[in-house]
Design a protein around this nucleic acid. Sequence first.
DNA 1: CTTACTGCAAAGCGTTTGCATCCCG
DNA 2: CGGGATGCAAACGCTTTGCAGTAAG
Lengths: 150, 150
Amino acid sequence: MKCHSHKKDLKKEVETFLNKLRSSGSRITSQRKSMAREIIRFKGPFSAEQLHSKVQDEGVDLVTIYRSLSTFMELELLVSVDFQDGTLRYEYGSEKGEGHHHHIICKKCKKFEPLDFCVVQGQEQIIEKMGYSNVTHKLEFFGLCERCLV
Amino acid sequence: MKCHSHKKDLKKEVETFLNKLRSSGSRITSQRKSMAREIIRFKGPFSAEQLHSKVQDEGVDLVTIYRSLSTFMELELLVSVDFQDGTLRYEYGSEKGEGHHHHIICKKCKKFEPLDFCVVQGQEQIIEKMGYSNVTHKLEFFGLCERCLV
DNA sequence: CTTACTGCAAAGCGTTTGCATCCCG
DNA sequence: CGGGATGCAAACGCTTTGCAGTAAG
């Protein structure tokens, strides 16, 4: 039951993703369909390499992944998340609006959990008064998870 | 008058920096003395390359810079700052304590200003209750400065 | 004297670019 | 069909590593 409705949700979300792509004038290729599906399935931050491993069976090149990720970022379909380990992650969602959230990331194993609070957004107005426009923020928490503490 | 006292402050701060190094069992080389002086002079985030340009006249290699920066980070003499442009910056100071602060960074020209407020530190305790230890956070604001807005 | 630190060269890694080909609309 | 998207190979920029020589304590 639950499983079936999840599948339906996925299909619907992929469709939403692709529609945003389409309406920007971009083309819907088979590679991008695969990417969209996996990006939504991740339900959290992922690296280019991780996405590649999910779609390389379908013949999607890593370079294509990088180029599409860059396109998706410009269209604000994705946000970037810095894990502080030299590899950039991406996550389905936009900087502003409902989905906005941050993470607690384990310094050692890089596992993460989303956080449902953000006390920072109010600060952006203060900074806009300082003379900056289009202000956003990046916030991540880092710690050692229980398993890695030992 | 002011200039003279600044010089004195610099010398004292460099001494403090080197003492922390010394007391960790590290050696005080001429290269590290130069680096310490310039790190404190920056009064803000700097890249390895920027530091190199300040001390290469004194014969300090870029590789030595990277290795020392890594040492200084371990000793918590520096914190890292992510400008989201693929080049890591470092800043004199520690994660916790008096000096703790964040920045507003211009997305285009990468100029920055320090911010004197941080509303996030209280959240770290919430996350420690979630089962994480040694929790810190990274927060930076990004916007377009007046000059770059055009 | 011991061994941490340094410089040089080379490699490593994630990411980007050039170019010919492909295929979406 | 025209132009955006792709795959392959090669380059890129930042950072790390190997190793022999140097110098701090």
